[in-house]
């Protein structure tokens, strides 16, 4: 089987955010491109394509992986979670923001939003391993992701606030009044 460019393509079944996506991709297609352009999940962003910025981070089997450093064909049968899959079901079509997402909103943890999906996935996994990080541990958790807008100050606050929200500490209502006690 080949595509419009005459390249051999492979049938790949990707499990993303609980749905199955059957895609046909050449062996060299990056997972980031497959997610964005074949599955239409454009929430995962590409900032460098060489594994340094972390914008493309998705969870593969629950672990943060740089999707620009994986080939789509190598992700067959893995459970993949992208930023679109982080919201929690609450009966509404769009779902409720997860504690990590809510914390970013509460603490102004994002500006242009381009790096944000990679931080959200990274922190989601990080808090599963360490639900109650110290401020230093919060920094450590995000130390592999680049953001050019925020200077990281409010991202660190967001990690701590997300931990509190997961714990049931702190109201989940939005509102930046919460900034101070984050």
């Amino acid at each position: 089987m080949s595509n419009a460019a005459g390249e051999e393509v492979h049938d790949v079944r990707l499990h993303v955010n609980g749905s199955v996506h059957e895609v046909q991709v050449p062996a060299r297609r990056l997972l980031s491109d497959a997610l964005r352009h074949d599955c239409g999940l454009t929430g995962t962003h590409v900032g460098c394509e060489h594994g340094v910025c972390g914008a493309c981070t998705v969870l593969v089997g629950g672990r943060p992986m740089r999707s620009c450093l994986m080939l789509a064909v190598s992700a067959v049968d893995a459970e993949i979670t992208t930023v679109e899959g982080l919201t929690e079901a609450d009966g509404s079509p769009e779902g409720r923001l997860s504690p990590v997402q809510q914390a970013f909103s509460d603490c102004h943890g994002l500006q242009c939003g381009f790096c944000t999906p990679g931080f959200l996935t990274t922190i989601t996994a990080g808090l599963r391993d360490n639900p109650d990080p110290s401020e230093d541990e919060a920094r450590e958790m995000i130390a592999g992701n680049l953001c050019r807008c925020t200077g990281y100050q409010n991202i660190v606050k967001s990690v701590l606030r997300a931990a509190a929200l997961r714990d049931g500490r702190g109201a989940t209502s939005s509102g930046t009044e919460n900034l101070e006690d984050a």
Partner: peptide, 16 residues
């Protein structure tokens, strides 16, 4: 300090 309205779409991966 009004919370940003644009955050909703960015946080959900719905930015364009």
């Amino acid at each position: 300090k009004v919370a940003r309205v644009e955050d909703q779409r960015f946080l959900r991966g719905q930015g364009r």
